Simulated assay, not measured.
Amino acid sequence: MGAFDRLVLFSEVHGTVLKDGKPVEGAELIEKVVWSDDENEIPQQHAVSDAKGAFSFPSIERKAGLLRLIPAQPTIQQTITIKYQGVEYTAWLHGKTSYNANTELDGKPLNLVCELTRQPDYEGKHYGICKAV
């Protein structure tokens, strides 16, 4: 990776919101990144689930600049929150320690199924109601 490559702070996400196994339309999803190397707050991304419960977020990236030349392990806190019918759900909580794409799931794309009736729990290195598929 060169000094002018992009730093991927949150890989592209595709997912589905379900309640009792049925698609949820109109759920609001908020994706947020807190990055230790950025003095400015990174704007949250918003999405709304469609009639099939589907949602997506583009990747959140920053210019690498000199950070690629300095050996250090990043500290990136990722969260996705779902708001539906007045209830807020912890969908995804993960600490990312790499600037490469798709390292959240060890190289696999972020394809999630978020079941609103599920209790938040750990799956691998992430926590929440969303499970990787």
Rank of each mutant, 00 (worst) to 15 (best):
N102Q: 14
P109Y: 06
S36T: 06
Q119F: 03
V48D: 05
Y84I: 00
N111Y: 02
E41L: 07
L69D: 09
V113T: 15
P23R: 10
G107E: 05
I42R: 00
T81H: 04
P71K: 15
T103M: 13
R68K: 13
V87L: 05
A101G: 02
Q85R: 12
E115K: 10
H46P: 02
F57G: 10
G65M: 03
A64V: 02
G53I: 05
G53C: 05
W35D: 04
S59F: 02
I80F: 00
I70W: 04
K19H: 14
V113R: 04
L29D: 10
V34E: 14
K22T: 12
Y122G: 00
G21P: 15
E115N: 15
P58Q: 06
T117M: 09
S56L: 05
K83H: 07
P58N: 13
P23G: 11
L29P: 08
A72R: 12
V24H: 10
L18G: 03
D121H: 10
A51M: 09
K52F: 12
T75P: 00
V48C: 11
T103A: 08
G21R: 14
E31L: 14
A91M: 15
Y99H: 14
I60V: 15
Y122W: 15
E123Y: 00
N111C: 10
K63W: 09
G95C: 03
G124F: 01
S56I: 08
A72Q: 13
E104C: 08
T16L: 11
I42T: 04
T81F: 02
K22E: 14
R62L: 09
K63Y: 08
L29F: 07
K96R: 07
T81Q: 06
I80R: 00
D38Y: 01
L110N: 03
P71L: 11
G53Q: 12
S36Y: 07
C114H: 02
C114M: 12
I82P: 00
I82V: 15
T103N: 06
I60Q: 01
E88T: 15
E31M: 15
D50M: 10
T97A: 10
N111S: 13
Q77K: 07
K32D: 08
T90K: 07
Q44W: 05
D37Y: 08
Q119S: 12
L93I: 02
G124D: 03
G124Y: 01
S49I: 08
V24I: 12
W92D: 08
E115M: 10
S36C: 01
G26H: 11
K96V: 03
L116F: 02
S49E: 08
N102A: 11
E61S: 06
L93H: 08
E61I: 13
T103K: 03
V87M: 03
E39T: 09
E41Q: 13
I30W: 04
H46W: 09
E123M: 04
Q73K: 06
S36Q: 13
S59Q: 08
G86V: 08
Q73V: 14
K19Y: 13
L93D: 14
P43R: 07
A72N: 11
E31C: 09
G124S: 07
W35T: 00
F57K: 09
N111V: 14
L116E: 03
K83W: 05
T90A: 09
T103H: 06
P23M: 10
